[in-house]
């Protein structure tokens, strides 16, 4: 299987060497923003980067596998273009945050990753999202399979009106899980840090739980089908601060095994939970574009683009 890696070296030639994914060598050293962004950005990301890319990229030396590689991804709803030519990697086993003001196409982009946009009449995607050597957007790739392997947690908790047990088992059932179902349910609930709260009332309706519990149930439900990537669309925006903290802790824990992409409105949240951050911004025609991508720490402490800095310092609202 062709895996893509991006290894970004300081002022080195673009490389495409396969490096062991397991060892995460934190380097932390960030170079100063180069004077000519375009050239250096292109050099930094190496072969994957489109030369026309306008977004700024931070150099970083951490060696990570890419879980998803976006190339010139555009999305349309009918004649309205929601996002325009985004190119960026999603690192494996990391939390990547998509931030930006309302209407900049964060959610649209997230929904491209597991083809949820297929369900909206008139929506279409252009470009390429590479996942395990295949283009996700290719109509020949089965959306159902994509969604099984790339799970999703939504803004508002949406448990099915079934028992807690059935909620977790649903995905596994339809996907023909042949193992021990009880064990899978327990395991998934444990990972979602919900087991201790619900283990005695698995027959209770999922709708009877509190909002935070419902959201963790939805995470457990997503885990149960054993996806490789979990997409989270503002998972804590409908929750109170305590429940939000729990979800954030959970995200950090889950990142050890899963690749997580999270859309968030909340800058502090992005800073707390994510390893990498992409800042998106809509232009005047309301078309979302990628402005800056890099390690979260760098984006927050040392943004290259003026607009990113404005947003992070709260000048966009």
């Amino acid at each position: 299987m062709a895996r893509n890696f991006f290894t970004v070296m300081r002022s080195s030639a673009p490389t495409r060497t396969a490096s062991p994914a397991s060892n995460q060598t934190p380097s932390g050293q960030v170079t100063a923003p180069p004077p000519n962004m375009k050239q250096d950005a292109a050099a930094g990301v190496g072969v994957h980067l489109d030369p026309n890319l306008e977004a700024v990229r931070h150099d970083f030396t951490e060696e990570v596998e890419t879980a998803l590689q976006l190339r010139n991804v555009s999305a349309f709803y009918g004649s309205f273009q929601a996002i325009d030519k985004m190119t960026m990697p999603i690192p494996r086993n990391r939390v990547t945050a998509l931030i930006g003001p309302s209407g900049c196409g964060k959610s649209t982009l997230l929904r491209c990753f597991n083809r949820m946009n297929d369900l909206i009449p008139g929506a279409r995607i252009e470009g390429e999202i590479e996942f395990e050597g295949r283009n996700l957007i290719d109509p020949n790739v089965d959306a159902v399979e994509v969604r099984r392997r790339i799970g999703m947690v939504f803004q508002k908790p949406n448990p099915f009106p079934k028992s807690i047990y059935e909620n977790v088992a649903f995905g596994a059932r339809i996907n023909g899980y042949s193992g021990d179902m009880d064990r899978l349910v327990e395991d998934s609930l444990r990972r979602a840090a919900l087991w201790d709260e619900v283990k005695d009332e698995l027959d209770k309706s999922g709708l009877a739980l509190s909002g935070g519990q419902q959201q963790r149930l939805c995470i457990a439900r997503a885990i149960a089908v054993q996806p490789e990537i979990i997409l989270m669309d503002e998972p804590a925006s409908a929750l109170d601060p305590v429940a939000t903290l729990k979800i954030e802790d959970l995200m950090r824990e889950l990142a050890e095994e899963y690749t997580i992409v999270v859309v968030t409105h909340n800058m502090q949240q992005a800073g707390r939970v994510s390893d990498y951050t992409a800042f998106l911004l809509a232009g005047e025609e309301r078309v979302g574009r990628l402005v800056e991508f890099g390690p979260t720490q760098d984006i927050f402490t040392n943004p290259i683009d003026q607009r990113t800095e404005d947003y992070i310092t709260g000048r966009y609202g």
Partner: peptide, 17 residues
């Protein structure tokens, strides 16, 4: 609600499921 359908689709359900 639409969100229930989306939740099910996101788990890899077919339309019939």
């Amino acid at each position: 609600p639409r969100s229930l359908r989306e939740g099910a689709y996101a788990l890899g359900s077919t339309r019939m499921e």
